[in-house]
Each structure stands twice: as C-alpha cells, then as structure tokens.
C-alpha cells in the first residue's frame, strides 16, 4: 500500500475493543482509500505499555494509538470531566456527545497529537461483596477504583481506594484486599470476578473513556485524498459506531448475571440516586478549580458538556 500505518492498543487481540471497534474502523479506512492506506494492528502492549500510549502517538513510535488518558492521573485535567460519575448514561450516543465536546478542547490539551475518536465504555457501576445502596455504604470499604477520579470519589466517601493492576483485580477481591470494584458489567464476568462480587448497584454510575489519537507528522505526511479518508473516519458519528459493539458486549453482562443466578442487582430509588449525585458534587467543583487554573471558562465548558450529552440523549 501507498501508506503503511501502525496502530497500537493494549488489550488482547480477541477483546471486543479490537474485534467490534478497531477492526471494522480499520477495514472501512482501507476500503475508503481503495487500498492506498494499510493499517497494521499491534495488540496487547506489543509496542509499549498501556499508560505510555499517549506518548507513543506523540513520539511517533506508532502512527495511531488507542489511549486511556486516565492512566496518567493529573495529566489531562480538562478531559477528566468525563470521568466524574453520573453524567453519561449511554456509551454509543455519549461517544458522539463526548467527541463533539472534547474535539475543540483537545486542540489545546492534547496539542501534540491529533484527536480522532472518543470511545467511552458502557457505563459501569459498583460491584461488591456486600450490599451497597447509598454513598454512606462506602465508608470503611476498600474499593478498587477505575481511575484516579473515581479514587478521589471513594476517598471523599470515607472509603479507601486500592490500586492494583487490572489483571490483579480478581486476586485483590478474592483475597480480601478489596471489598468492591468499579467495572463495566461484562468485565466482571470476563475477569472471573462474578464469583466474588454478588451485589451490584443497577445504575449507569460512571464511564472511563479511551481516545484514538494520531501522530501529527504521520497525519501531515498524508496526501490530500488520504487525509480526507482519515478525516472522514475521525468524526463524532464514527465515535458512536466505534463504541457501539463493545458497549453492547459489556451491557450484556448484566443479563448473564441474572441468568446465572445468585446475584443481587439493586436498582436505587430516585432519592438514593439523588444522594449519590449530591455526594459527587464536590468532584465537579474540584474539576472546575483545576480547569480554571488552566485558564479556561470552566462553567461554560461544563455547561457545554451537559448540553452535548443532552443533545444526543446520553445525559444521566
């Protein structure tokens, strides 16, 4: 092919992220470019560790990098708004909203790469060994948080975040190092944690998002017609399409637990939901302070996010 691109991510090649997200996207690019662009996928951290994926795109180690900005706490403070719980309730439509909201912000916050796609996972929730219904139930518990924002939330509720690598999450729960974990639904089954956590809070608690990023030089080196192909695949619509398959796979996890039996899936009352949202309010204040420190109009930026979510029917 005229252009050879390397795409790196950190999950196994068989993961729904690759089979239902990355592969169809790559195929569409190759077809739209009539074979001029060829993309080789390097899964499973073959070209670099998961937390290094942003730098790998920046430094040209790869051309395209599937990155979780949340792996590096504190580095992308504006982006971290999406990690605050109780905002997004649907990944496919939420991806479109997040893309529209973040694309202009990325021009400054991620100025040394090209922002291409947003890929939030299906809203995850809190899975625990004992029942958790309201924020006060977190007090005194050890919780494995999804990201640094969630760790802050757990701490503010009187719980203790326990950071362990994802593959050790099951071990941590089984061995009593953690009493609860925040995870998307099917990941609980995939990682075999379903045998440990029998209680689940049935609400779209939080998301963690991944981004597809591109190296600037690789982008600049493209011919005009090839650049158009890439541009056409870095759109809010594609963010939605990219996110759909994996989200459905994760969402199916809840039904699997119901079918398997032995699980208590608790749907909180609207009063209880309000307790959770109130408890998370300080996170928004902290975010606004950090955003202001970056010199942006934090209130407007926050409103923009809510509007984008509302526009695409993805608002909690």
């Amino acid at each position: 092919a005229e252009v050879e691109l390397r795409l790196s991510h950190w999950v196994p090649a068989t993961h729904p992220i690759q089979t239902l997200g990355i592969e169809p996207w790559v195929k569409s690019i190759e077809e739209a470019s009539q074979g001029r662009i060829h993309i080789t996928i390097f899964p499973a951290q073959q070209l670099g560790a998961a937390p290094d994926h942003y730098d790998m795109a920046r430094d040209g180690i790869v051309d395209l990098s599937y990155t979780n900005p949340g792996y590096q706490a504190g580095r992308f403070p504006l982006y971290s708004l999406v990690e605050i719980p109780f905002h997004m309730n649907n990944a496919e439509r939420g991806a479109v909203a997040m893309h529209e909201w973040y694309a202009p912000i990325a021009k400054t916050e991620m100025s040394d790469v090209i922002f291409c796609l947003a890929n939030p996972h299906d809203p995850g929730t809190i899975h625990s060994k004992g029942p958790i219904h309201v924020p006060a139930d977190i007090k005194g518990l050890n919780v494995r948080p999804a990201h640094a924002t969630m760790a802050r939330f757990i701490s503010s509720l009187g719980g203790a975040p326990v950071q362990v690598p994802a593959p050790e999450a099951r071990e941590a729960i089984a061995k009593g190092a953690a009493d609860a974990i925040t995870f998307p639904w099917n990941s609980i089954n995939i990682f075999g944690i379903d045998s440990e956590t029998k209680y689940h809070l049935d609400m779209p608690f939080y998301i963690s998002a991944q981004l597809m990023l591109m190296n600037k030089d690789s982008y600049a080196a493209l011919s005009e017609e090839n650049r158009k192909v890439i541009d056409d695949h870095c759109t809010p619509e594609w963010s939605g399409r990219f996110s759909k398959g994996w989200a459905e796979n994760e969402a199916s996890g809840k039904q699997k637990m119901i079918d398997a039996g032995g699980h208590t899936i608790y749907e909180p009352t609207s009063d209880e939901v309000q307790l959770w949202r109130d408890a998370s309010a300080p996170l928004i204040d902290t975010w606004k302070e950090e955003a202001k420190a970056k010199g942006v109009d934090a209130d407007k930026m926050y409103q923009d996010y809510l509007e984008a979510l509302g526009r695409h029917d993805a608002k909690f």
Binding site: D55, A73, G74, A148, A151, S155, P161, Q163
Partner: peptide, 17 residues
C-alpha cells in the same frame, strides 16, 4: 520534563510524578 510540564501525578495523593 514531560512529566513536569504535563502535571502527571500519583494516583491517590496527587504528588507530582
């Protein structure tokens, strides 16, 4: 220097990396 300018921090206490 990249960590210095990007504000990368530890997970819990947000000590500068």
């Amino acid at each position: 220097t990249s960590a210095f300018y990007s504000g990368e921090a530890t997970f819990d206490l947000r000590m500068p990396a």
